[in-house]
């Protein structure tokens, strides 16, 4: 579903992404881990198209997307959430989700009809609000939501772009332990055929959610395997432990 082949990106002499390869099968959930400065964010930006790689390939569902703009990749089925909440202040939860769905379904052209009110879109928006636990707040303005609820809507908006592959950039950043558990449960409740790639620094979240784990260090893949194997891998612990201990 998502395939990264020998991807490299350098800023000057600094090789921030160094020959990274991995692949996600349909429905697979993979977490990319790594200490600060390991090149996680750069990798994320290469995938979404904010940055273009120096070499290597990114394939979505068999299509090479290297040359595509971010919005073209979205149309191909790559949805993303942001590390910092990036919402539509002044719009309600429902309005935001319906708008996102309308964009994905190409219903934003009409100067006369309101495509965001089409039955299919309204229903789907309610469904997504349910998935991220915002059903009761669907008519609340985004700026009146609590931080945790805003975090949930952040994921909801990414889901509303109806992705085949969902990329999440540190979805639990800034929320407390309760919310982190709720987030883990929420991801567990998403449809099993949705492919998910999560960039994360919290190891526990990663181990709870992931089918597979990629660990980056200095831009290189140093581990690729199951969470269980990662937990017991001496390599991973050596690289990660200093940062891990610091985080805890």
């Amino acid at each position: 579903m998502l395939e990264v082949v020998e991807l490299s990106k350098a800023f000057g002499a600094l090789r921030v992404t160094n020959n990274v390869s991995f692949r996600l099968e349909k429905g697979e959930r993979r977490v990319v881990l790594g200490p600060n400065g390991a090149g996680k964010t750069t990798l994320f930006n290469l995938l979404t198209g904010e940055l273009s790689p120096d070499s290597g390939r990114i394939n979505i569902d068999g299509v090479t997307v290297n040359q595509m703009l971010p919005n073209e990749r979205v149309r191909l089925g790559l949805g993303r959430s942001f590390q910092k909440n990036n919402l539509f202040d002044g719009l309600t939860v429902g309005e935001s989700l319906r708008l996102a769905l309308a964009i994905k379904r190409q219903k934003t052209f009409s100067l006369w009809r309101d495509g965001t009110r089409d039955a299919g879109i309204v229903e789907r928006a309610e469904e997504i609000a349910g998935m991220v636990g915002l059903t009761s707040q669907i008519d609340v303005s985004c700026d009146a939501l609590s931080y945790g609820a805003r975090r949930q809507l952040e994921v909801g908006l990414a889901l509303a772009s109806e992705p085949k592959v969902l990329l999440m950039d540190e979805p639990t950043s800034g929320v407390g332990p309760d919310m982190t558990d709720a987030f883990t449960a929420m991801v567990g409740g998403l449809p099993r055929d949705l492919t998910i790639l999560i960039i994360e620094h919290d190891l526990d979240v990663a181990f709870d959610i992931a089918d597979s784990v990629t660990v980056l260090n200095f831009g290189k893949v140093v581990f690729d395997g199951t969470p269980e194997a990662a937990r017991t891998s001496r390599e991973v612990r050596e690289i990660y432990l200093g940062d891990w201990a610091g985080d805890a």
Partner: peptide, 16 residues
Amino acid sequence: SSFGRTLVGLHRNENR
């Protein structure tokens, strides 16, 4: 209309 909704969305958060 759809266009109007999109326009307001653009105003609120073009990046998103």
